[in-house]
Design a protein around this nucleic acid. Structure first.
Length: 657
DNA sequence: AGCACGCCGACT
DNA sequence: GTCGGCGTGCTC
């Protein structure tokens, strides 16, 4: 007997091993096995079992599982994900399954038979050491021992995955675009319906600490200890409790972020995905997938109701929903809100003027006793310094590159040649002191405010500072007048009401590169408004003629327009984009890897789908990204060959290129 | 990925 | 004259 095994390595093929007769009964499809690989052992997953004598093959060393932990539903989802995201199955499985040692750490062995050893229980790991794993697996299969987990105290047996209580699945398959208050109401109604039938609800959230904390609090207030978390943000024991309960019990709300889309859930009767447009649902490490797209597939293949909730639209998902018979409910919540009538735009001639007007406004607002949040598209201090006499960026005297300002060292730093010189209030070329930042960043606004109005209670919110600031913001409560300055991380402050939302230089968002820049602009603005529920919005513009914010607030019209443009240009979702990256430590090696990629693409007649090749050199590596545009199965035939080139990785549906 | 084999620079 | 850098190839 031969078993085909996939390993957690970025290689597109499987490896075959012979299966010794004594372990054959315990090796099944999708079970984990220990195999010799090179000089060492590796954990692999059996993806096929077939007949044959297997001369020249190595043998499987031992079965690792008492029964396969992967049920057919999870297996099918992993298969789908592997081919949809062009990731080797071994890497998908490594991501989808909890490490065996996390599971076994909490298992105890119980003797059930009348055998020679007296009834009792012992930690699984110790018993494995004493008797050997194979022996235990044999005893388990013949019924002499059983396993129990030490957290829920339930028997650990092969779960019987079942579809949840069949409700009115069709009407509950919805993309629901509305404010957070309405989404919460909707979620609660749905959860109530399913939980009463002992169904489990999988509730996907973009993170654990912000959106996660908000919804945990809301859910716990109603359902108490029926609320579980499964994600990398919680301690192992808590995560494993969720794992053990989810696979056997019912009536739980299982909250988690992107990895929980692969969690085996007994009686799964509803999937909710909050802020389905959030970038955090995209995994960027090794297995590059989108948890929302994967959740849609899980719901589709299992006939499970799914509700995708958010404040903004996402063209890709909207289109997908239409194709799959998922309803879209968008009531244009922003267009009808109070603040729409109060949107005010203040133009300026320079970043300096913008900053002055902005600060004056903030100080007045805070003194009036109103909460304010200032959104700035960039987090850095300011992106480059400009001389208004030379009419261009401050130029490096050595190489002519752009100078930017290093806040910590108080120096000018050349972005091209790394030269540094002490900061002076003058242009190095013409000596004029008419210099300033060509763009402003959140830190710059924050520092400027702290300096000009020392008494003001200002907090800087960026992706880095959010986690630290959150507890303090919660504690202070809504009564303390505050001013927040921050980047898009501000949109994570669910339920933090501000009276005035200031958008500083928001038009900068529209200059983002990539075909999704308009959509991202809409999403950032919508999510800011969703979290901060402003009564009033003021836009500060860097130029005199400023763009109109309103089209970004009319959600339905926005996505219809966006879809129309995408179709005309033949861009996603009407086609797929694949990035084939060839990476190496030296330029020469990267070039050679690229040449191999091109050969494989050419051999598979993919040249007509080539969109271009772009260099992507981030310091320790040199890399080339080859972009292909085409149907969803475009790379199926080239997949294995591409992954057999060292340093090659494929990313499907990349939102930025 | 991770590890071994293989060919070009600074050391006792 | 060697040690060791990383580029290349291969893993049942």
């Amino acid at each position: 007997m031969i078993a085909d095994v996939v390993l957690p390595i970025p290689v597109g093929k499987y490896f075959s091993y012979t299966v010794p007769v004594e372990i054959a009964p315990y090796v099944s499809l999708w079970s984990r096995v220990r195999v010799p690989f090179r000089q060492r052992d590796a954990t692999g997953i059996v993806t096929a079992i077939r007949e044959g004598d297997g001369t020249g093959l190595k043998a499987i060393l031992e079965p690792l599982e008492f029964f396969p932990l992967v049920d057919p539903e999870l297996a099918a989802l992993a298969d789908w994900a592997s081919s949809f995201y062009l990731t080797p199955k071994g890497l998908v499985m490594k991501y989808a399954l909890p490490p065996l040692r996390d599971i076994e750490r909490y298992l105890v062995v119980e003797t059930t038979g009348e055998g020679p050893s007296a009834a009792g229980s012992a930690l699984l790991n110790k018993t494995i050491k004493r008797l050997g794993r194979l022996r235990l697996v044999q005893l388990f299969r013949q019924g002499s021992i059983s396993l129990r987990d030490d957290i829920t105290h339930r028997k650990f047996t092969a779960a019987h995955p079942m579809a949840g209580p069949s409700g009115d699945n069709q009407t509950e398959r919805t993309v629901f675009i509305d404010s957070v208050g309405h989404r919460l109401e909707r979620y609660i109604t749905l959860i109530g319906k399913h939980i009463d039938d002992n169904g489990n609800i999988l509730f996907l959230l973009p993170d654990h600490y912000a959106a996660g904390a908000y919804f945990t609090e809301k859910m716990k207030a109603i359902y108490g200890d029926r609320v579980l978390w499964f994600s990398s943000g919680v301690p192992v024991k808590q995560r494993m409790e969720t794992y053990f309960r989810a696979r056997q019990e019912g009536g739980y709300i299982i909250l988690g972020n992107k990895n929980s889309v692969f969690l085996p859930v007994h009686n799964l009767s509803l999937i909710i995905a909050e802020r389905y447009d959030d970038d955090e649902y995209r995994n960027e490490e090794s297995f590059k997938f989108n948890a929302i797209r994967t959740a849609i597939e899980r719901a589709r293949s299992g006939g499970i109701p799914i509700v995708l909730g958010g404040a903004a639209c996402c063209a890709n998902i909207i289109w997908h929903a239409r194709e799959n018979g998922i309803a879209i409910q968008c009531n244009d919540w922003m267009a009808g809100s109070n603040f729409t009538n109060t949107i005010k735009t203040v133009g300026s001639r320079s970043p300096g003027e913008l900053l002055d007007r902005l600060c004056t406004d903030i100080i007045e607002t805070v003194h009036r006793g109103d909460n304010t949040a200032v959104y700035v598209p960039r987090k850095e201090y300011g992106s480059y310094l400009k001389c208004y006499v030379c009419r261009g960026p401050l130029a490096c005297t050595k190489c002519g590159g752009h100078f930017d300002y290093d806040r910590d060292k108080d120096t000018l730093h050349c972005t091209a040649c790394d030269a540094e010189r002490p900061y002076m209030d003058a242009c190095p070329n013409c000596g004029s002191n008419m210099i300033g930042f060509a763009r402003i960043g959140a830190s710059f606004v924050y520092d400027h405010l702290s300096r000009t109005a020392p008494g003001l209670n200002v907090t800087l919110i960026t992706g880095d500072s959010l986690k630290e600031e959150l507890p303090a913001l919660r504690k202070k409560g809504p009564h303390r007048t505050q001013c927040l300055v921050g980047t898009r991380a501000l949109s994570k402050l669910y339920g933090y009401h501000v009276d005035k939302l200031i958008l500083a230089d928001w038009e900068e968002l529209r200059k983002m590169s990539g075909f999704r820049s308009e959509e991202k602009t809409h999403q950032i603005i919508a999510n800011l408004i969703d979290a901060l529920t402003p009564d009033e919005i003021v836009c500060y513009s860097r130029s005199r003629k400023s763009a109109d914010l309103v089209p970004y607030l009319k959600t339905t019209a926005f996505y219809e327009n966006e879809l129309r443009k995408r179709k005309e240009a033949d861009f996603p979702p009407f086609t797929r984009i694949f990035l084939v990256e060839a990476r190496a430590k030296t330029q020469g090696a990267a070039d050679r890897a690229l040449a191999k990629v091109k050969t494989v693409l050419s051999d598979n007649d993919l040249d007509p789908f080539l969109f271009g090749t772009i260099p992507h050199n981030k310091p320790p590596f040199h890399s080339w990204k080859t972009v292909l545009k085409g149907p969803k199965d475009l790379l199926d035939s080239a997949f294995t060959d591409l992954y057999n080139i060292a340093g090659v990785e494929i990313e499907a549906d990349s939102p930025n290129f």
